[in-house]
Computed example of a mutant assay.
Amino acid sequence: MGELDGIDPALHPAYRLCRALNAEHGKTYFLATRLLPVARRAGVHALYGFARMVDDVVDVAAADDDDGPIGSRLDALEDRLRAALGGGPTGHSESDLVLAALADATARYDIPHEYFYAFLHSMRMDVPGSPVFRSRYRTMPELAEYMYGSAAVIGLQMLPILGTTCAIDEAVGPASALGEAFQLTNFIRDMGEDLGRDRIYLPTDELAAFGVDEELLRNCRATGRVDPRLRRALAHLIAHTRAVYRTAEPGIDLLDPAVRSAMRTASVLYADILREVEDSDYRVLERRARVSRRRRVAVAAPRLATAGWSSLRARRHPASRPPLPVTD
């Protein structure tokens, strides 16, 4: 069985493009996707392709280039998204292909459309000049609005594709928490890059509780020095993020047994970024913490082998009883 079996052949180029985007940019995400049952991977690639396309509009394009301001481009993209999700035709550009794959996956798995619009709302919060733009967040509750659309809904989009052993509503809370844990990890890892773009996502009240203000952050970034106050603030925020991971952990056992290994691998590897931050002495303002390839392989290889063996058995014995679930 291949990833595209059962999908309209006319859509195969669209799904292949989304897979290529995931492979090129996803790293940990793509590695975890390879652990999923083959039939579910294409839908996940489509979700990634769309998220990547929107990120490119917000983060890569200049604020006012030949294609127009970012806000206008997001508005145009949302119009195209609504048309595609409504069954309208798409063109042949790369972005059209991504939308075609997304619309197909959304229809096949009955993913609520509101999740995609919430994602676009949060992306507008990153766009200077937008009515909802914010470059600073004072408290965790203030940040929650942004994280719902930028992170929680990613987990919620995934649920219908992954499948659950319970009513899907029971898995919503943990799935949202896992998305938020990933996003908080990103905020810690990317603190220096974000500051260079004049953005501070980590709540300023949380930082101020340890004596960290923007002036101190910029001084540390300029000098390469890790102030003890910053070290304590980051240790606190890492502890908070690990607590969010613990909230999400029970939700993995609510998923279809065949996908648990993939999601646990993603959770372990993403949480490892926090350990890398600690091991670097919290030098997030001057370098980006990365999980080594050796570590990624050590965590994923045994599960990849098990997933591959299960897939091989399914291809060789399609009429026999279903393969045993991928175990952890």
Rank of each mutant, 00 (worst) to 15 (best):
Q157F: 09
R231P: 02
R296D: 02
V98A: 07
D65P: 00
A100V: 00
V58C: 10
L217D: 00
S310Q: 15
L159A: 01
A235K: 12
L102I: 03
R293I: 10
L85C: 01
F119M: 15
L36N: 03
H240M: 15
P318C: 07
A32L: 09
P325Q: 08
F133W: 14
T327W: 15
V326K: 13
L274F: 03
A262F: 08
R295Q: 08
R199T: 04
D56T: 00
A152I: 07
R108A: 06
Y117P: 00
A181Q: 02
H236S: 12
R124C: 06
D66M: 14
L285D: 03
P318Y: 00
E180Y: 12
A62F: 13
A305C: 11
A307D: 05
E276V: 13
R303F: 07
V291H: 11
I70E: 00
R321Q: 09
G251F: 07
L97W: 09
M263D: 05
V127T: 07
R189E: 06
R321S: 14
K27A: 14
V60T: 12
A177I: 03
S280E: 13
G196L: 02
P37F: 12
G2R: 15
R221Y: 05
Y245V: 03
K27V: 09
A62N: 08
F210H: 14
V98P: 01
A266W: 03
T223H: 02
G179C: 02
D8F: 11
V297F: 13
S292F: 11
R52D: 00
M125T: 04
A10M: 08
A177V: 01
D253C: 12
E278V: 09
I7V: 07
F30I: 01
N186Q: 02
P318E: 00
L47H: 12
T265K: 06
R231L: 06
A167Q: 14
L74R: 05
R108E: 01
H113F: 12
L269P: 06
S267M: 15
F30L: 12
S122R: 05
D96E: 02
L269G: 08
Y48M: 00
M140H: 14
T185E: 04
D64S: 10
T33K: 09
Y148H: 15
E94P: 11
L17H: 09
G43E: 01
T241S: 07
D55T: 11
A314M: 09
A262D: 02
L184D: 02
G68K: 05
R303H: 13
A118P: 05
R229N: 02
R189H: 06
A175P: 04
P13E: 03
G2E: 15
F133R: 09
P318N: 03
L120C: 03
Y148G: 07
L47R: 08
L97Y: 10
A83I: 02
V268G: 06
L102W: 04
R34M: 15
M158H: 14
P257F: 08
S130N: 04
S93Q: 10
E3C: 14
A42N: 07
S261V: 04
G49F: 07
V244T: 03
G6N: 11
P203I: 05
S93F: 11
D55F: 11
P302M: 00
P318W: 00
R73Q: 08
A118R: 13
V44L: 10
A105F: 10
P323T: 00
A175C: 02
W309L: 15
